[in-house]
Design a protein around this nucleic acid. Sequence first.
DNA 1: CCAAAAGTGTTATGTGTACACCCATGA
DNA 2: TCATGGGTGTACACATAACACTTTTGG
Lengths: 226, 226
Amino acid sequence: MTSWAPDVVAVTVDLVILTVRDDHLVVLVAERQWDPFRGSLALPGGFVEQSESLEYAARRVLAQKAGLNDPGHLEQLRTYGEPERDSRMRVISTAYLSLVPQLPEVANLARWVPVRALGGGGLAFDHDRILADGVERARAKLEYTSLAGAFCQEPFTLGELRRIYETVWGVALNVPNFRRKVLSTPGLVEAIGQRTEPGSGGRPAQLYRRGGAGLLHPAMLRPESA
Amino acid sequence: MTSWAPDVVAVTVDLVILTVRDDHLVVLVAERQWDPFRGSLALPGGFVEQSESLEYAARRVLAQKAGLNDPGHLEQLRTYGEPERDSRMRVISTAYLSLVPQLPEVANLARWVPVRALGGGGLAFDHDRILADGVERARAKLEYTSLAGAFCQEPFTLGELRRIYETVWGVALNVPNFRRKVLSTPGLVEAIGQRTEPGSGGRPAQLYRRGGAGLLHPAMLRPESA
DNA sequence: CCAAAAGTGTTATGTGTACACCCATGA
DNA sequence: TCATGGGTGTACACATAACACTTTTGG
């Protein structure tokens, strides 16, 4: 046994937190207070502490920087480790993807920005790439999982659920066929036996909550994507 | 600016290297020479050096420990960062998944072991979990990508390609339907206009090479999995 | 009355699946 | 002639896509 020791690096977590507001897919970003990239927008993130797991660190950042104590959905996205991605030191970052319902208000210095407004550029570090990966993951998983429900506040109508798909995918879906597809997929949604209060024109809709199924068989296919 | 400094941890890469040999899905493992887990089997891995990217580190380990200089396929799998996963120090590990053709021989101290022989237990650290994640990723990606070709040495027959799917998925596929499915998927395979030499009974088969397509539309569905 | 959103019915089209059958080779 | 693997044809079940139509609300 020698006195050799491995190189050490700093490890962070960065969060892609998505929700749908006013028919726009929006992401939570914060303005950086210090260099590098002072004044630029960046994804919420933080260093991983010695005795916490990566997921625990992600939940801590979610609570501290976004005020979210119960993320509807949280999954690991990918790890980014290019040597020059942070000019200060060697930092590798494990990104997490969180999908939350519309409810959260702007927290601290963070705010919601439409993904399309960022247009693939403008975030600090390699966060444009991380955001793009997160959005693509979310789009893909709507197809074969029940993840769209994570964007909805319960109870929800099938119209609200459909607008989630349409917003995230950026396409229009056929209304009657969407309804049949959702209802014929076991465990995707469960009717709670109530209707919306009439109030804004149109027939009151039945209300649903998320079902127990995680994976969809067969998948909900998106039309040739936009 | 204060003198605060982030916690630092060691970062490693671990590799799940899969291939198909004799109709078995096998993984490359090495016997550990030092504690902890001395004598146990573990996935090939190594520390990430200061100035190399994670993927570069994975390629270096692939070359050094497995003698593979041109992996057919290499992708990031997931990052594992539980605080107690390595008793010596805080180590987080980014796992990579590599799929290679049958050709490679056993290298150095590493050897091929059927995944089913490990039976979900027996590897050092949390490598059972990493292996399970890698196998599940490979199984899933056969469905919607052209990844099965990465297991084949070119040129290959449709029968060989079919046995890849059957071995990885652990199911039997309908022979005529598999053929039509593969040939009707644009860019999956390309005929090279030659046949196998007759020699072992049965009609000589046409030979193919991998096509340019990465994603399959529509997907190759696996029967209810085994 | 019309507009808007929910919800139902029907039909064409395409894809997956099952199975019968033929072809080319070795033993 | 049989066994083995390659390769073709065909019919049925099922899912999607397109569109016409009805229901229930507000203006």
